[in-house]
């Protein structure tokens, strides 16, 4: 029980906020952040889509190894990895248990393992990109690849107001707690206390949304006075914003290195078709 309690104490909103912000912005010094965001996004697109069309275990395993390497390079926080593992194991574990009910046996675990592998590759690729590059670079990359200015701005602004939203959310939750009543006993396995907190998390969204709506009035007005909508239609502005993007030799080396590795995997995969 003490364990559960400790976990409750560890997982605070504050902590989650910190980890998220660390993941998003704490990457300035990482090798991957120096790469051109356009290249990174293209790179990511390949690894987000290709695995779904592959069934060769050797190729998948090879890609998975590569993803582990890039994830390590992006110095992601252990917390995120933990959440990822929890999600993967939880998801696939459920499927496996269900398959046992429907007459499956240990053999049915193998295809599930493949699914897990695919999911892992896609997830790790996402983590690599979102943790290895800060949102500003991603947003610039998207703009350069032809996404509308409003979209790329919303992405960077979305990250920017995360701390504000968290702050707001925390104070709303606090208001509920300061004026609410916690269950007298925590219940079996802290179920009652858990339900109390979960309910609070849900109802807290309503005040949060209203408060945010009120804030955005000023934001929208201020954007207007600072020439935002003018800039969106201004090709000069777009050009200036993107002028710092350059594809360097490093980017080419990174992309071609990855391509060569993938080609090698496909070649081996073709030689030893280990499809399940």
């Amino acid at each position: 029980m003490q364990l559960v309690r400790n976990w409750f104490n560890k997982i605070s909103i504050e902590r989650i906020q910190l980890e998220l912000m660390n993941t998003a912005y704490g990457s300035g010094h990482v090798f991957l952040s120096a790469l051109d965001p356009r290249c990174m996004i293209l790179w990511y697109l390949f690894f987000a889509i290709a695995p779904w069309f592959l069934s060769n275990m050797i190729v998948l395993a090879g890609l998975f190894l590569l993803m582990i390497a890039t994830t390590v390079l992006s110095r992601v926080s252990p917390f995120i990895i933990f959440v990822l593992c929890l999600g993967l194991v939880g998801q696939v574990g459920w499927l496996f248990i269900l398959s046992l009910f429907f007459g499956g046996d240990i053999a049915s675990a193998l295809p599930l393992l493949k699914l897990t592998l695919k999911l892992s590759i896609v997830s790790l690729a996402s983590i690599t990109v979102f943790s290895g590059m800060d949102p500003e670079r991603i947003s610039d990359g998207l703009l350069a690849l032809g996404m509308p200015a409003a979209f790329s701005f919303s992405l960077s602004y979305g990250y920017r107001i995360l701390p504000v939203l968290f702050e707001e959310f925390r104070s709303v939750l606090l208001s509920y707690r300061l004026r609410g009543r916690a269950p007298a006993s925590p219940g079996f396995l802290y179920a009652r206390l858990g339900a109390y907190y979960l309910k609070m998390l849900v109802v807290a969204f309503f005040p949060l949304m209203l408060a945010t709506a009120k804030r955005s009035r000023t934001t929208v007005e201020a954007l207007e006075t600072r020439g935002f909508s003018f800039g969106m239609k201004n090709p000069k502005s777009r050009q200036l914003k993107l002028s710092h993007l350059k594809v360097t030799r490093r980017d080419i080396a990174f992309l071609s290195g990855t391509a060569a590795y993938a080609a090698l995997l496909f070649w081996i995969g073709a030689a030893y078709p280990l499809a399940i």
């Binding site: 500003e136 600072r226 201004n234 914003k241």
Partner: peptide, 28 residues
């Protein structure tokens, strides 16, 4: 130039320098 009373809501960029660049960048 206009500075709002709830000035925190008019800051839209992540870093200090980006924030200062925002308007001139929009005007190209």
């Amino acid at each position: 130039g206009y500075v709002y009373q709830d000035f925190e809501n008019q800051l839209v960029r992540p870093t200090v320098f980006d924030e200062a660049c925002f308007a001139p960048l929009n005007y190209g």
